[in-house]
């Protein structure tokens, strides 16, 4: 883990109140794994903002952070531009289990839950299927980025873009059509529950990336918690340290 001030190399407005920052942070980049996150320090705020890694580029020593402007802190961050510096703590947490390239994986992302899945699309490419869900056309982000790497299906609740409906029918069709070794999902809780249920029904391993309000980010304060159950034993685990990625079958919603 590192904590320092790092330069921003690119800012991009993705629309829908979502923006992308690329940050030159070679130490963090070298240690980072898909599914991990950083905590961003925002001047004037007592708590850091946990943001997942949407891109890890070891060659450039850069990470990419995709952030929704949905509060005073993330709004302050939205004013940062190329050349500004940003206070990062990371890489944090336990990321996705990574089977060897060639494994057939499915990504299921909902809204602002899509960014942490992008490094998986880049890793698995031809053996990866992405299913991305959004409320409507105006909320769609990163679909082009995913489509650069892998087969990508976009679903919208209102049918204004891609397939009308939630991600569930598309995931079920995929699970029926081909052998999937593992499903990775990140998004709102109802979507995660649906993914978990479908994967259990089809006996496919699934890992979910959870979101929780957190403070320290390093496992010290146990402010973020998720109840898990494995082999009949219930345990409270730390989202920031033991997660944010957990086996879907273990999570007690």
């Amino acid at each position: 883990m590192f904590c320092d001030s790092y330069p921003i190399t690119a800012y991009e407005d993705l629309g829908a109140g979502v923006y992308s920052l690329r940050v030159k942070a070679p130490q963090i980049t070298a240690a980072a794994q898909p599914g991990q996150f950083v905590e961003i320090g925002v001047p004037g705020f007592s708590l850091r903002r946990p943001i997942s890694l949407c891109g890890i580029d070891p060659e450039k020593g850069e990470i990419r952070l995709v952030i929704a402007d949905r509060g005073a802190g993330t709004h302050t961050l939205s004013t940062l531009r190329e050349g500004d510096s940003i206070d990062l703590l990371g890489p944090l947490g336990t990321g996705f289990a990574l089977p060897e390239p060639g494994a057939h994986v499915a990504l299921v992302g909902g809204g602002i839950g899509t960014p942490p899945l992008l490094p998986l699309a880049e890793r698995y490419r031809e053996t990866c299927n992405a299913i991305l869900g959004y409320r409507g056309r105006d909320q769609v982000i990163l679909d082009v980025d995913f489509a650069r790497f892998c087969d990508t299906v976009v679903c919208t609740d209102d049918g204004t873009y891609g397939v009308k409906g939630t991600v569930s029918p598309a995931l079920e069709a995929l699970l029926q059509a081909c052998r999937i070794d593992i499903v990775y999902a990140c998004g709102p809780a109802p979507m995660l529950r649906a993914v978990r249920d479908l994967c259990m029904q089809y006996s496919v391993r699934a890992q979910l990336s959870l979101e929780e309000r957190m403070a320290c980010g390093v496992g010290a304060c146990v402010g973020c918690a998720v109840m898990t159950e494995h082999g009949g034993v219930r345990r409270v685990r730390r989202v920031c340290k033991d997660g944010p990625v957990f086996e879907a079958a273990d999570i007690v919603f």
Partner: peptide
């Protein structure tokens, strides 16, 4: 097990916890 989450909230110049 502690309390059910969310257990953290930001406040002006501070934070709440209900761990």
């Amino acid at each position: 097990a502690g309390n059910r989450p969310p257990r953290i909230a930001e406040t002006p110049a501070g934070m709440l916890n209900s761990v």
